[in-house]
Design a protein around this nucleic acid. Structure first.
Lengths: 197, 197
DNA sequence: CAGAAAATAGACAAATCTGTCTATTTACGG
DNA sequence: CCGTAAATAGACAGATTTGTCTATTTTCTG
């Protein structure tokens, strides 16, 4: 994914970069992309400013990297949940919503990092907006595969509808600090799946 | 709604206030609540700074007022769309999604102002976050009434599910600059309605 | 027309923002 | 152990942020 020359690639360099990314993720997700300043991040990570600007061209660049890294995490989590769900196509598809439920139940859940990025950078042409939407497209693709496995007539159409349920649940779970939207979404998904085949 | 003393209530005063609110709405919705500064807003509205701080206690207070005003607009729009849909309970309920479609088709559509507020102020205890969620609760109530009219078994449950579809569609329409998510949501809503009764 | 309320321009404070630059120190590999 | 690359501290620029204060002018009402 992260294309680029790692010619000399000292281990320490990558370690600093990873450390910056994880600290940035934690602060950005807790307080917001625009709210958290570079100085705050550097103080929290205990890293010098020039180190950050040596690894990332700008704050915008850092945020895009944070989003891509988080996207990988989420997709990995979803793949794992689907695998653990066994062979039944219906169970595999609904496993996505069970995964959501555990996400919502986490103490530090503060909504969807991607929806929040889309909102904080509302211009669709903005690189951060684009990076966040790219993640949503990847999720849609995964849903379409699961829908096809389940033998529905139009997997793409079902995937589109399920993604609406998921994003809606993410928003509702954020504001209500409850896992219930995952249950609502799961039930609705089951109904839509039945209607689609 | 807007409780408070309007003791002397000079017309001119209210006019300034309304002018500030409409300019604030336009800029905040176009570029984001945090991005737009007070000075920018004042320059655009051609109003003095002390006038603003005479009508609103703070920027936060102004944003809350903008959100409440927008909420009234949206609810009025929805009520109108439902009324225009006639008597069929199913048509009335689906009219919400037709209204969404025209919203999405607007040139300056930039996502849901309330979802964006929830995201820009991710702390659920924040007054702006709370004001935005209050709107979503009002929409849910309206959906529950329509669901009850349609004679479904559990109107609250259907309203919850429909709200997920709506918020998901708002997010998708924003990022894709397309009205298609309204069609997807409408179809899914019709399926859920059928399954619910 | 007189008096009161509202709006104005503009300076100002105090903090914060991202990004650049330099000089120094640390750390690692051959 | 030496040379190179990475990381550091900290100053600095230049712009921007919200909110306050004052002195003046406009505007409306009785």
């Amino acid at each position: 994914m992260t294309a680029g020359k790692q010619k000399s690639a000292r281990p320490a360099a990558s370690a600093k970069r990873r450390h910056l990314l994880s600290t940035a993720w934690r602060l950005f997700y807790r307080d917001g992309y625009r709210t958290v300043g570079i100085d705050t991040l550097l103080a929290e990570a205990d890293v010098a400013k020039m180190t950050l600007y040596n690894h990332f061209a700008s704050k915008e660049d850092l945020i895009v990297a944070v989003i891509q890294r988080r996207s990988d995490e989420v997709l990995d989590g979803l793949v794992g949940a689907v695998k653990a769900a066994g062979r039944s196509p219906e169970r595999r598809l609904l496993a996505v919503f069970d995964w959501l439920k555990t996400l919502f139940a986490s103490d530090d859940f503060k909504g969807c990092a991607f929806v929040r990025a889309l909102s904080e950078y509302p211009d669709p042409g903005h690189p951060i907006h684009h990076a966040a939407w790219t993640h949503k497209l990847a999720v849609r693709k995964m849903l379409a595969v699961l829908a096809a496995e389940a033998g529905v007539k139009d997997p793409g159409a079902l995937a589109d509808a399920l993604r609406l349920l998921i994003d809606g649940a993410l928003v509702a779970a954020h504001a209500t600090r409850s896992a219930k939207p995952a249950i609502v979404a799961r039930q609705a998904a089951a109904n839509l799946l039945k209607a689609a085949r």
